[in-house]
Amino acid sequence: MPQELNYLKETPSQTAGPYVHIGLAPGAAGFDIYTRELGWDITGPNAKGERIRIEGVVIDGTGSPIKDVLLEAWQANADGVYAHPEDEGDVEDGFRGWGRVITDFETGEWAFDTVKPGRTRARSVGQQAPHINLWVVARGINVGLNTRIYFEDEVEANAEDPVLNVIEWERRRATLLAKRSERDGQIIYRFDIKLQGEDETVFFDV
């Protein structure tokens, strides 16, 4: 018998369940308990860059919107810097780069306001296209799903993005491109997530 490696095993995941709001967004569950809920403000007041709103629904394999989802976003600032000591560079005071939203109990719509992130360094050479990392949990989802929001108008950057180019099927890459429009002077990106079936969103094992 060789020596034992003695690594610990990661704690296994379980579903967040239908009442995830109690813990992570108690105001939505129907009660105020914390002086400050976390995750409502991704950018803080001083963020540079283009102000955008991202919105969508999460659709299950029957084609129905899911109404008990929680999504978390993690993104760089407009200069492509993450608010984390392991990235190089500084971010604006108050910029955290992380947020969480829940879907509306009646319609399943979710939305968050942020700034468009800049390009970030790639793992090896070059740069990644602007993107927002997204983590999706809900009742019926046993392990949180990782995906990325890219922007359809970043054509050149998307074409050389190392992650998009890992996806063999071009048609599947399109599931990660948020669609740009304008409403009342506000820039809106639409990003619907399909958990299962035709045009299923690409999910990553990160």
Binding site: A83, H84, R121, A138, L195
Partner: peptide
């Protein structure tokens, strides 16, 4: 996991795409 019924329509059918970690995965909120 079919015995947990809600997972049936909420589970992706395609395989996950494996990503080696970039700065986007190594960093996280503080």
């Amino acid at each position: 996991t079919k015995d947990y019924k809600t997972s049936v329509a909420r589970s992706p059918q395609y395989s996950l795409i494996s990503l080696q970690n970039s700065v986007s995965e190594i960093t996280g909120p503080v």
